[in-house]
Simulated scan of single mutants.
Amino acid sequence: MSKTTQRIIECNGIRLNIAEQGEGPLVLLVHGFPESWFSWRHQIDALAAAGFHVVAPDLRGYGKSDAPEAIDQYTILHLVGDMVGILDVLGAATAVIVGHDWGASIAWQAALMRPDRFRAVAALSVPFRPRGKALPTSLMPRTETAQFYQLYFMEPGPAEAELGRDPRATIRNMLFGASGDGVAAARAAVAAGGPALNLSMVPKGGGFLQGPGAPKTLPSWLNESDIDFYGEEFKRTGFRGALNYYRNIDRNWEITGAIAGLQVTVPALYIAGDRDFLLSFPGTDQLLASQKNFVPGLRKIQMLPGCGHWTQQERPNEVSAALVEFIRDLPSRS
């Protein structure tokens, strides 16, 4: 079997790094925060072996891809435009798009806006969220002592400084803390009389990185060389590009009024871990229960017991098998 290769392409006015492997129908894998194409390392091999041309980009602001300076260069229209641009460079009329975390939001919007180019969508962790009636930041939780982590990310400077102080330690602690293993460890600590931590809230005057951090021995799904890869990437790039995605949340709401109420009509799959902290966000349970109203082509909601936020890395075999099954069952391309 061929190995994964990387190359720089030019599309949508910037240069993007893509990792690719295999031949056949195109599958586009879109990573989340704070990751890179590398988060799909297991799925790239599995999907290529199953007969697909697999492409996983470093999103703008990440890895070896360009990182525009201006915050307004990271809107959802830019991000979906990058995905369309990749298809154009590859000469592909259509693709199945798969996303995790921020990549899931991009994948949902790509399928919503361009069903002519994205013939199916699989989303990990983040369900489809229809456009609301108010600016998203106005609805984010805040108290006298803490604020929602996305609000903390809004102000340029503090989050970059905190996360960039030791990128390797940041990634190591984030990957463990939001994993199923990390959630289990936090619950055990509370049961033993320790303080409860809310991963989604940042204390006023405090930082995003909370808790005891990752243990000396990592869980089996993660190793030190994986941390080394991510750490070196963010040591080189910093976190500004990645954080700029959050700084466009309200702007995204403002510029997508024209597509409010549209449904995701292509075939869809949703996968999440039952320990994913995103599932505890207010209203997410009702959102999942009503996904079919917004995504009539939804084939399946697959919950992975004991899995946390890093879905495709924590449960690589289960996620890869679910993706292969979903894509193989799609209608033949015309």
Rank of each mutant, 00 (worst) to 15 (best):
A49H: 08
V319K: 00
L87F: 00
T217A: 14
I18N: 08
R117C: 12
P68C: 02
T5P: 02
T137I: 05
E144A: 15
W310L: 12
R131P: 01
Y149G: 00
D285Q: 15
G182R: 04
F326K: 06
I9M: 10
W37M: 08
I259Q: 12
G22Q: 08
A189K: 04
A50V: 01
E224H: 10
D166N: 15
S138V: 05
I71S: 11
E20G: 08
I14Q: 07
L26D: 08
K300L: 03
Y74D: 09
Y149H: 14
A70T: 13
S320C: 05
L262T: 11
V121L: 07
E160Y: 10
P331G: 03
N12F: 06
N293S: 13
T170W: 05
M201I: 06
R165W: 01
P282L: 10
E314P: 12
E318Y: 03
G306I: 00
G24V: 08
M140Q: 13
E318P: 05
M201S: 09
A191M: 02
E35D: 15
G308F: 05
R172K: 12
A122F: 05
E314W: 10
P215H: 07
V266D: 11
L218V: 11
V183P: 07
F234T: 05
L47C: 09
A322R: 05
G297H: 10
A107R: 07
G132P: 05
L29F: 13
V126T: 08
A185H: 06
I255K: 10
G63Y: 07
F52Q: 05
K64G: 13
S36Y: 13
G231I: 09
K133M: 09
A268Y: 13
L47T: 08
A107E: 10
T94L: 02
A107K: 06
A46M: 08
R236L: 08
G81M: 05
G182M: 03
G261C: 11
G297R: 03
I327Y: 01
A272C: 12
G207V: 03
V30N: 11
G99I: 02
W40I: 03
K216W: 00
I8H: 02
S65I: 04
Y245T: 01
H53V: 01
T237F: 00
A242M: 00
V202L: 02
V295M: 09
W253M: 03
S332K: 14
P68E: 02
G164P: 02
N252K: 01
E232W: 04
T237S: 14
W108N: 05
T4D: 08
V96H: 13
V30C: 12
P215I: 04
Q6N: 14
G157V: 01
V84H: 04
